[in-house]
Simulated assay, not measured.
Amino acid sequence: MNRKPLAYIDVLDGDQARSSLAVYPDEDGSARLRIGRSFDCALNLDDAHLAAEHAELHIHAEPQATLTLLPSLNGAWQGLHHLRAGATLNWAADGVIQIGHTRLRLRHAAAPLAEELAPLQTSRQGLSSGLQMLLLLLAVGGLSAFEFWLGAEPDTPWSAHLRPLLMLGAAVSIWAALWALLTQLFQRRFPFQLHLRRTLLVLLGVTVLDGLLSAGAYIASSPWLMVPATLLPGLALAGLVVWQGRIALPKRRKMLNALVLSALATWLVFAWNAQEQRQYRWRPPYLATLLPPQLRAAPLRPVDALLKDAAALREPLAAKAKRDPQGNEISEED
């Protein structure tokens, strides 16, 4: 008669199980076994940092276990908490502990299964993945080349436009490769193309949205539209890190989200302080690229109103002129 395993103990390699030991219950519904390097141990591990009999594990009928550490030099780690020989710790289902250099995960039959994760990429009818990637590359490269062309001098040679495009391509490729290496470390696969596609999608979205916001600010004479345009790169980078992290670290989403939110809040604080001496916060003081006048939808203002607004800037500009870039007052001797 086949018995149902009470639990599995996974030996982890990254976030993936390198090997698993099925543990079957005794008559009372629980199970006991020893862990160590000795061949007498039910879970025999080839780890030089373990004692011959390193720990004794008692798996209960309910979804938890108790680990008692036997005499050893290294004890065990539960998260950031180090336990020495003689200590006893509660090991919850799906929890991870480290003994020596070996990370172990407990999967209990009585514990509810986690929800199935959404697929990283779905199969759709239509364009092949290679053609989609080519179109993304052309779109991002074309928009980037257009932006470089707008900001360049009229007599700039065409070869000068190629350099920033190559630098952008190298930066995007390195970013995707680093995330693929992180995924290889934790998930044992190297999805470079998937990371590259997500990076290009975010970059394309940022480029298009930034152009639309800038154009809207000019057409409607609404400078406040430049506020989200200024914040857009930082917000997009934070979103991209979270999106890429769903591939590389699917079981550490809460930790990754907390780190990204903390970094984003820190960036906002420093960015706010860095713009202390600017005339307007979170946006450039003027539009660097002007569209054709025919696209203006906002009503024209008379010249007298423009001169009146310019006169109102005299005192604030004079006050700013008396301070250095750090905001300190400039003495007359200086």
Rank of each mutant, 00 (worst) to 15 (best):
P5S: 02
L6E: 04
A7P: 06
I9S: 00
V11W: 01
D13K: 11
G14E: 03
G14Y: 02
G14K: 03
D15W: 00
D15S: 09
D15H: 07
Q16T: 10
A17W: 00
R18A: 13
R18N: 01
S19M: 05
Y24D: 00
R34D: 07
I35D: 06
D40H: 07
D40Y: 04
A42L: 07
L45T: 03
D46G: 05
D47W: 09
L50Y: 01
A51Q: 03
E56W: 01
I59G: 02
A61H: 13
L70I: 02
L73R: 15
N74T: 14
N74A: 11
G75M: 02
Q78D: 13
G79F: 04
R84Q: 15
A87I: 06
W91E: 10
A93D: 11
H101E: 08
L104T: 04
L104P: 06
H108F: 08
A109I: 06
A111K: 10
P112M: 08
P112Y: 08
L113S: 12
A114T: 05
E116G: 02
A118P: 00
A118M: 05
P119A: 06
R124N: 06
Q125R: 13
Q125V: 06
S128P: 11
M133T: 13
M133L: 15
M133N: 13
L135D: 04
A139E: 02
S144T: 06
F146E: 09
E147K: 04
F148P: 00
W149H: 12
L150M: 09
L150V: 06
D155P: 01
T156V: 02
H161R: 07
R163E: 03
L166I: 09
A170G: 11
A176H: 09
L185H: 07
Q187K: 03
F190C: 00
P191N: 04
P191L: 03
L196D: 05
L200M: 14
L203V: 11
L203S: 10
L203D: 03
L204S: 09
L204Y: 06
G211S: 04
L213D: 08
A215N: 04
S222M: 13
M226F: 00
L232A: 14
P233D: 09
L237A: 14
G239D: 03
W243R: 12
G245R: 01
I247V: 12
I247E: 02
I247N: 03
P250G: 03
N257F: 06
N257L: 08
A258L: 13
A258E: 11
L261N: 09
A263I: 05
L264V: 13
W267E: 10
N273Y: 14
A274M: 14
R278Q: 15
R283W: 07
P284M: 05
T289Q: 15
L290E: 12
P293F: 12
L295A: 14
A298R: 12
A298P: 13
D304R: 11
D304S: 15
A305S: 14
A305F: 13
L307I: 09
L307H: 08
L307A: 04
A310W: 07
A311E: 15
E315I: 12
P316N: 12
P316I: 11
L317W: 15
K320N: 07
A321K: 09
K322V: 11
R323S: 10
N328Q: 15
I330D: 02
E332L: 15
E333G: 07
